[in-house]
Simulated scan of single mutants.
Amino acid sequence: MEKPDPQPLSCRPRGSRPTRRSSRDDPDVCVVFPGLVTRESCCRFTCELLKHILHQRHQLPLPYEQLLHFCTGQQDGEEVVRRPIKEASDSRHCQRALADLEELISQLDVFFTLTPVPRVLLLLGGSPVSPKELYVIDMEGILVGNGEQSLCPRPCLRQLFRALFVADPFSDLRSSGLMSLVLMVQGHRDCATDWFRPKLNYKVPTRGHTLTIKLSSCGADGAPDHSDDYIWFQAPVTLKGFQN
């Protein structure tokens, strides 16, 4: 990839000072990073958004890190001790949800090393072709670089979640019951993944509540065309929400 032109001094991330808006008025949350971003960082953005959306939409009773500690009793440097939440059934549901989520995160790590990922879809409720809620993570505008050239992921995550906090896209949504989440990821058709299942004819749903989170780099000149060489892949694991 050619190096982008030097960033002008006047270029400030548009996502650094987002204005509060209703999710019904503008379903997009736009974040512009002030430089290059690695594929590993893009994967981390995706995984953190996945965990955040599951909690915000009441599919997990606690944020992921708290749930992991509560279900396993795990702390840094401590041996993992399994312990139930309230009842054995709750513990089984918690362990199953965490195991499925951890497997999906692990496989996303692999997938992002195999191919650039322009977009990820989180389809909540309903079916993959007709979900109740659709969350689009659009990364087509990100300029990818190596570790030395690229931004540290931690401040990028702070910028991303600051934009989500100010935009407040979940406040207008009604509380929902437990739903299943299907993840679709876009990648090169020849990426040779052995876990995600190719869906050659899949089309992004147009019905249901949609929130698009657009991530890009300052100075990117439009999104590349991925229509021919990139296809959708579906995760074989369906995440099922639970409450204790």
Rank of each mutant, 00 (worst) to 15 (best):
V117M: 05
C191D: 01
F70A: 15
M179H: 12
D172G: 11
L60F: 14
F165G: 00
L157M: 05
P13M: 09
L160T: 01
S10Q: 01
T206N: 11
E148A: 11
P84I: 07
Q243P: 00
V32P: 11
S227C: 08
A88Y: 15
R82P: 02
L9E: 03
A99N: 13
P116T: 14
Y135S: 09
C218K: 06
Q149K: 10
S217I: 02
T115S: 15
S91F: 13
S16H: 01
G177N: 11
E40T: 02
V204Y: 00
P128E: 13
Q149V: 05
G222V: 08
E133T: 11
S89N: 03
A97G: 04
I53H: 02
Q186F: 01
N146P: 02
Q95K: 08
T206I: 11
Q66P: 00
Q56F: 04
M184S: 06
H55E: 11
K240S: 07
V31I: 03
G187S: 05
M179P: 00
K132Q: 10
P13W: 02
H93P: 01
L164G: 02
C47M: 07
H188C: 09
C42M: 15
R189V: 05
Q74F: 11
L164V: 07
Q243L: 15
Q75E: 12
A97Q: 09
L62S: 06
I85A: 13
Q7S: 15
R24L: 13
P131L: 12
P224F: 08
Q56L: 08
R96W: 10
C94Y: 10
E2R: 05
T115P: 04
H55R: 12
G125I: 13
A192K: 14
R119I: 13
T238S: 12
V32I: 06
W195G: 12
H69P: 00
S22G: 06
R24I: 14
L181K: 04
S22Y: 06
L211A: 05
P198S: 05
G241P: 02
H52L: 10
E103D: 14
R83D: 04
R83N: 05
C94S: 15
I213W: 01
G15P: 03
E78M: 14
Y202R: 02
L164F: 03
G126Q: 07
E40N: 04
